[in-house]
C-alpha cells in the first residue's frame, strides 16, 4: 500500500505552490488589502514548505531508503532514483530558503509594496521560481513513482 506520507508531502508542497503563485499574480495589480494578504500568504507558504520538508523527509528517511529505493534500482527504470530522486531530494532543500526570502521581503516592505514596482518584481521573480521548482518537484515525484510501479510490474522483489 502507498504510504500516506507521500500524499501529505505532495499535498503540502502543492498548496505551497498555490500560495506563492497567488503572490506572483496579485503583485501584478496590488490593491488596498494586498499588503496584509501578502504577509499572510507568504507566512502560510513558508509554513507549508517547512511542513512538506518534514513530511517528505520523514518518509524518505524511514521508508523510501529501505523499501522503495532498492525496488527502483533493481527495476527497469533505475534512473528514476539515480537521477531524479537524487536531484529532487537535494534541490528541494533550496525551496525553504527561497520561501524565507519572499517572506522577509514582503514583511520588511510594508506599504512600499504598493509604490515600489521593482520590489514587487523582485518578489514575483522569487515566487515564480518557487512555483516552477515546486512543479518540477511534482514532475520528478511522478517519475519516481512510475519507476517503483514499473519495477513491481516487472516482478522485482526485494
Amino acid at each position: 500500500m502507498t504510504d500516506p506520507l507521500i500524499g501529505v508531502h505532495a499535498f503540502l508542497g502543492e498548496m505551497a505552490v498555490f500560495a506563492f503563485f497567488w503572490i506572483f499574480v496579485e503583485l501584478f495589480n496590488p490593491g488596498k488589502k494586498t499588503v496584509s494578504r501578502m504577509k499572510l500568504l507568504s507566512g502560510i507558504g513558508m509554513a507549508l514548505l517547512l511542513l512538506s520538508w518534514v513530511a517528505g523527509g520523514y518518509y524518505y528517511v524511514t521508508v523510501y531508503g529501505s523499501e522503495v529505493k532498492p525496488l527502483i534500482k533493481a527495476g527497469p527504470q533505475a534512473w528514476a532514483h539515480s537521477v531524479f530522486m537524487e536531484t529532487k531530494e537535494h534541490v528541494f532543500l533550496f525551496l525553504p530558503f527561497l520561501g524565507l526570502m519572499v517572506f522577509l521581503l514582503i514583511h520588511s516592505a510594508g506599504d512600499a509594496l504598493l509604490r515600489d514596482r521593482r520590489l514587487r518584481q523582485s518578489i514575483q521573480l522569487l515566487s515564480l521560481l518557487i512555483v516552477l521548482m515546486g512543479l518540477a518537484m511534482a514532475g520528478m515525484g511522478y517519475l519516481i513513482s512510475t519507476g517503483a510501479r514499473n519495477a513491481l510490474e516487472a516482478g522485482v522483489k526485494i
Binding site: 533550496f94 527561497l98 521581503l105 520590489l119 518584481q121 523582485s122 521573480l125
Partner: peptide, 13 residues
C-alpha cells in the same frame, strides 16, 4: 531588492 532576488534566483537555477 532586484539585484538580491536576481542573485538568489541565479544561485537556485
Amino acid at each position: 531588492s532586484w539585484k538580491a532576488a536576481r542573485n538568489v534566483g541565479w544561485g537556485a537555477v
